[in-house]
Design a protein around this nucleic acid. Structure first.
Lengths: 155, 155
DNA sequence: TAAAAATGGTTTGAATTTAAACTATTAAGT
DNA sequence: ACTTAATAGTTTAAATTCAAACCATTTTTA
């Protein structure tokens, strides 16, 4: 009985956690979208997530970017198409493995980093201003443990 | 300097947290979708999120459901349309305030709860199996504090 | 080495999303 | 009461999502 009660409490907490996670993500998305709109920049939050991965290192293939941004590879085809149209990235066929299309930033793509990147982190800085590093770290650990638990079970 | 370093670390942790949050949500979504598909049920994860809110209490208006499920009210029009088509809910105009459309579960809508609701919690139980209640609680607190910080700033 | 399996990308189709403009209704302020 | 503001819902348009089926290209394996 005591065990069941505890399990219920944990489930409820996990549901709360899920809701809070989603809310947090939507808040940040909304903030970034507003910033982008205010400055009349022709890019979406989703494209920005792809750009963020490339700013760290470009020349990745589409599947790799899809994995990093937690998207289906077919969404990635579409998103990269849109970024190519806006001349922010270019596709280059991999000579060593012709299945791969490597994605590189253009000059424009590098340039917008200076403008957009600060906004991406600004919100996170605000969000964590009142928090202690250790508490943040342990929250990350908790979420990662939950992810591990789910992945283990699925095998 | 030490302060800057700490801020950078916190930002990085917050980014990690954001990523973990999203990954967790996608894992759970994928699990539920698979379950639904296996049992040939004509419903989507998004519709299920709406149903979850109604199982707690129905007779809410669309805006209220939109707020609870963190969606735009126009998405809600669409989702409710699809749930009405499947005869899982019905729209009833509020007599006291004719702007409101109150959403009620049908018999079918109540019936599928027995089948679907356990799946919604099953994943959360698995995810949190190895975790302590206190750690889960403090993670929820951290996320809620982040949400508060963002909402405060936006005013 | 030939067949089978795995991998990367695209296409397709249906569902969903947001933002913005819009209508209808109610509430508030003067 | 009258005008204005706020609220609920719908519509529209464009972007995005996932899943599944599909091609092309490697890699594995028998």
């Amino acid at each position: 009985m005591a065990e069941n009660l505890k399990a219920d409490q944990k489930t409820q907490l996990a549901l709360d956690l899920g809701h809070a996670m989603h809310e947090l993500r939507m808040l940040i998305r909304h903030f970034i979208q507003t910033k982008i709109k205010e400055h009349n920049i022709d890019i979406t939050f989703e494209m920005l997530e792809v750009m963020s991965v490339l700013w760290k290192r470009d020349g990745r293939n589409q599947q790799e970017i899809a994995d990093l941004t937690l998207r289906d590879k077919s969404s990635m085809t579409y998103l990269i198409d849109n970024l190519v149209k806006r001349k922010l990235v270019k596709r280059v066929e991999d000579e060593k493995d012709r299945r791969n299309k490597l994605i590189f930033l253009t000059e424009d793509g590098n340039r917008v980093k200076e403008q957009l990147y600060p906004w991406v982190t600004e919100e996170y800085i605000k969000a964590t201003a009142t928090l202690r590093l250790e508490d943040l770290q342990s929250s990350v650990n908790v979420l990662k443990e939950m992810i591990d638990n789910l992945k283990k079970v699925e095998v």
